[in-house]
């Protein structure tokens, strides 16, 4: 535990003393802000239109900031994350391999799991910080309105789990190569594939093969969280994907020990 903590601190430190973390944070926040601002402006426009119709004797139509703004926004945050996660995970093993510090780590009294978990949670913390910057939007929305809290909470839980799964996969890919660019590119392609695989079954049906494809897709599981629906299926999917990523990382790190 203590060793994992040490690695965690070392990695987190490496993220935040280099400009890397800030580049990720700024890029993400800038893109998220653009989406937020556009969503907000269009929501207000919609709201105004509906109010005008009601004043002219039309039927009263409600507007709902949770369903008409936050839900779409949170889904979009996951799209932006798709571009950012490879930048977060690309260095975790590739850098150590490239700098030759991997041998040092492997010959140290640390176990593989301690190294992997330390690195994993450091990367996940950076991801959480990145997602956390968007809480500013929620604060603003609460200031100007009365959004429902629980669906927002479940949305953020979903985004965290989504990140936990993808960071796991990114770590595995990073452990395969010492080239950070290759690591980032491959991670991006794999994530994009896991994203789009659900669209192969875009006929939304209960046909089993299409259901399987949709089940494998990372985004299909996020939608319920973002709606405000908590389902153990999605929890299990994300946690097992994260575990699979970590397990494969372990196998990959272990193999460098005996392959020499």
């Amino acid at each position: 535990m203590k060793n994992t903590w040490t690695i965690f601190r070392r990695e987190l430190n490496a993220y935040f003393v280099s400009p890397m973390a800030y580049v990720v944070l700024v890029f993400f926040f800038a893109l998220a802000s653009v989406f937020f601002y556009l969503f907000l402006a269009s929501f207000l426009q919609n709201q105004q239109l509906i109010q005008m119709q009601a004043q002219q004797g039309g039927r009263f139509q409600p507007v709902n900031v949770n369903l008409m703004l936050i839900r779409g926004l949170l889904l979009n945050l996951s799209v932006i994350s798709l571009f950012m996660i490879p930048m977060i995970t690309m260095r975790s093993f590739s850098e150590d391999k490239h700098n030759g510090t991997m041998e040092l780590l492997l010959t140290s009294p640390l176990t593989n799991w301690q190294i992997i978990l330390g690195k994993y949670f450091a990367a996940l913390t950076l991801y959480a910080t990145m997602i956390g910057t968007t809480l500013l939007f929620m604060v603003l929305l609460f200031f100007y309105g009365d959004p429902e809290f629980l669906p927002i909470l479940s949305g953020y839980i979903g985004l965290l789990l989504f990140g936990a799964a993808l960071v796991g996969i990114g770590m595995f890919i990073s452990s395969l190569t010492e080239n950070q660019l290759v690591s980032a590119l491959v991670t991006f392609v794999v994530m994009l594939f896991l994203w789009l695989v659900g669209a192969l079954g875009s006929f939304n049906s209960t046909n089993w093969s299409q259901q399987l494809l949709q089940y494998l897709s990372t985004i299909e599981h996020l939608d319920d969280f973002v709606k405000g629906v908590f389902d153990t299926r999605h929890l299990v999917y994300y946690l097992s994907t994260a575990f699979l990523g970590l397990f494969l990382t372990y196998q990959s790190v272990e193999s460098t020990r005996w392959r020499g």
């Binding site: 949770n66 089940y215 405000g228 629906v229 153990t232 299990v236």
Partner: peptide, 15 residues
């Protein structure tokens, strides 16, 4: 595990 929980899920609407 995924198959098991797919069939035996707990679902709750937080809205």
């Amino acid at each position: 595990v995924n198959f098991f929980f797919y069939r035996n899920n707990y679902r709750s609407d937080w809205t």
